Amino acid sequence: MRLDKYLCETADLTRSLAKRAVRREEVRVDGEVVKDPSTHVDETSDVNWLGQSLVLTGPRYLMMNKPTGVECTSHSSHYPTLHDLIDLPNAERLHPAGRLDVETTGLVFLTDDGQWSHRVTSPRHASAKVYRATLAEPVEGRAAEKAMQSFADGLLLKGDSKPTRPAELHMLTPRDARLTIHEGKYHQVRRMFAAIGNRVETLHRESIGPVQLDPGLAPGECRMLRPDEIQCF
């Protein structure tokens, strides 16, 4: 990796500022001042800028148990963000691979690997997402059968031109549902229940693809994904 790119990745500098820092002789590599921004460095290099040792991070893959009242955005003026809950260097470089709205809880992946994130969220891969929903109105008997069939057939949501992909709805109790979807439309689960005349009161994502939310994670906690979990996508 070029030295100026390394500085961009580790010191959050623009490319022009990184080049300027090198030319001002502010950067040392393995103890020696380096003046050429194109100098090759790697993870074994000891890079120091203005007395600060720089460490290359990434790619990183995390799962979080997102609590309610937290936004999956980089900047927010109303609610805390996922980054406020992460105690890692350069946490701002991590982005959610599939978002949840502010009131929805449960599994969120965060990564700085754009290609992996795309595989998780791409409609082509159709990763199954499982949600647990508490409904405002009970759904039972023939109404439950009709709802499950409607979800399986696909629903045309307000504002959309195409119906949703087939989804699997299971009523665990008259007001407690588990729903598996294979896409990620805007507020999709809430809109699907609205389409059958109901309202979601609480919503929790249990899994994405074969990866389930770690039951040991309290709301707001995160952990690194294991290699086998990363390789699921």
Rank of each mutant, 00 (worst) to 15 (best):
S45V: 06
V47I: 14
V47K: 00
V47F: 04
N48C: 14
W49D: 04
L50M: 10
G51K: 10
Q52W: 09
S53R: 14
L56D: 00
G58R: 08
G58F: 04
P59D: 04
P59R: 12
Y61G: 09
Y61A: 01
Y61M: 08
M64N: 02
K66S: 03
P67S: 12
G69V: 01
G69S: 05
G69H: 04
G69I: 01
V70F: 00
E71G: 00
E71A: 12
T73F: 01
T73R: 03
T73S: 15
S77R: 11
Y79H: 15
Y79Q: 13
P80R: 02
T81C: 09
L82F: 06
D84K: 09
D84S: 07
P89S: 10
N90Y: 08
N90A: 12
A91N: 09
A91T: 11
R93Y: 11
R93N: 13
R93H: 14
L94I: 11
H95A: 15
H95K: 15
H95G: 12
P96I: 02
P96N: 08
P96E: 03
A97Y: 00
G98K: 06
R99L: 08
D101Y: 15
T104D: 07
T104C: 13
G106E: 04
L107H: 00
V108L: 07
F109Y: 08
F109C: 06
L110C: 07
G114D: 13
Q115K: 10
